[in-house]
Amino acid sequence: EVTGDQRPPKHARVEGGGSMVSGPHKLIPGKAAEEFVLPPAMGHDCLLDGKIVVKISDADQTILASMGPESLRNVVADSSVAVFKLLKVATFLNDLASQTKACADAKGKVTKLEKELHDAKEEEGKLKEKVGELEEKLSSLTLTSTTDEEEKKVDPTGTYAKFSRADLIAKIYEVRDLQIEVASSSFQNALAQLQVLNPGI
């Protein structure tokens, strides 16, 4: 609702490309505007197809008509410089975006490589532990093999291979007692022979 002499601002509506764009498009000469919406050229694919007449405002025509050749050349030169500056800024921003993306990709690769390196170090530690265990087993097998060879030299027929430690100790005592008994018997026989040969002893 509008009261008094106040009137709501008029907003032009322009249809293009199947979409509706609204906003102030007209400027009043000599007065500042809070907002100016550029014509929706991006939505008009047929803007320069020859069927649409492109015009400039009467005020701009009056200004351009009042300018001399030198002034027009200056306007063209200034506008060309502005276009080149715009191209430079656009190129710089494009390169900056590419560098930013490349930097982000590089950081992602670095993070991935760091994780792979960490995993590789953990795997290396596990493999070292396995190598240590295998070396211990190999050493044990070598010792067992050497022990088996020595046992074969002492017991070539394998008579005592299945004996327990207690059985071996008992067998040692048995052999010792037998040797003592044999030695005692031999001594007694030798003594008896001496007595026969020497009755006076």
Rank of each mutant, 00 (worst) to 15 (best):
E1L: 14
E1M: 11
G4L: 08
D5F: 13
D5W: 06
Q6N: 15
P8M: 07
P8Q: 08
H11W: 07
H11T: 05
V14W: 01
V14A: 04
E15H: 13
E15K: 11
G16V: 01
G16W: 00
M20H: 09
S22N: 11
P24V: 02
H25C: 02
L27D: 00
L27Y: 05
L27G: 07
I28Y: 10
I28D: 13
I28Q: 13
I28K: 14
P29M: 08
G30R: 01
A32H: 11
A33Q: 01
E35C: 04
E35Y: 05
P39L: 07
P40N: 03
A41Y: 03
M42N: 15
G43P: 02
G43W: 01
H44Y: 09
D45H: 08
L48I: 13
L48Q: 02
G50R: 01
K51P: 03
I52F: 10
I52D: 01
D58T: 04
D58I: 08
D58C: 06
A65N: 06
G68T: 00
P69V: 07
E70Q: 10
E70N: 13
E70L: 13
S71L: 05
L72C: 01
R73G: 06
V75S: 02
A77S: 11
D78W: 03
D78A: 08
D78L: 05
D78E: 09
S79Y: 07
S80H: 08
S80F: 10
V81T: 15
F84H: 13
K85L: 11
L87Q: 15
L87H: 12
K88C: 11
V89D: 15
T91A: 15
L93A: 08
A97R: 04
A97V: 04
S98I: 07
S98L: 14
S98N: 08
S98R: 15
K101M: 05
A102R: 08
C103E: 15
A104Y: 02
A104F: 02
A104S: 04
D105Q: 08
G108I: 00
V110Q: 02
L113D: 04
K115R: 07
E116I: 06
L117K: 13
G125D: 14
G125W: 05
L127T: 08
L127E: 09
E129D: 12
E129K: 05
V131Q: 12
V131L: 08
V131T: 09
E133D: 05
E133G: 02
E133A: 12
E133K: 14
L141C: 04
L141R: 10
T142Y: 02
T142C: 06
T144Y: 06
S145T: 04
T147H: 12
E149R: 09
E151W: 15
E151F: 15
K152P: 00
K153P: 00
V154N: 08
P156M: 04
T159G: 01
Y160T: 09
Y160L: 13
A161Y: 02
K162F: 06
F163C: 05
F163N: 10
R165E: 08
L168T: 07
L168R: 05
L168A: 03
I169S: 06
K171D: 14
R176Q: 12
R176M: 13
L178C: 08
E181D: 10
E181A: 11
S184K: 11
Q188S: 07
Q188G: 06
N189G: 03
N189C: 04
N189F: 07
A192E: 06
L194W: 07
L194V: 12
V196K: 14
L197E: 15
L197V: 10
L197M: 09
P199N: 00
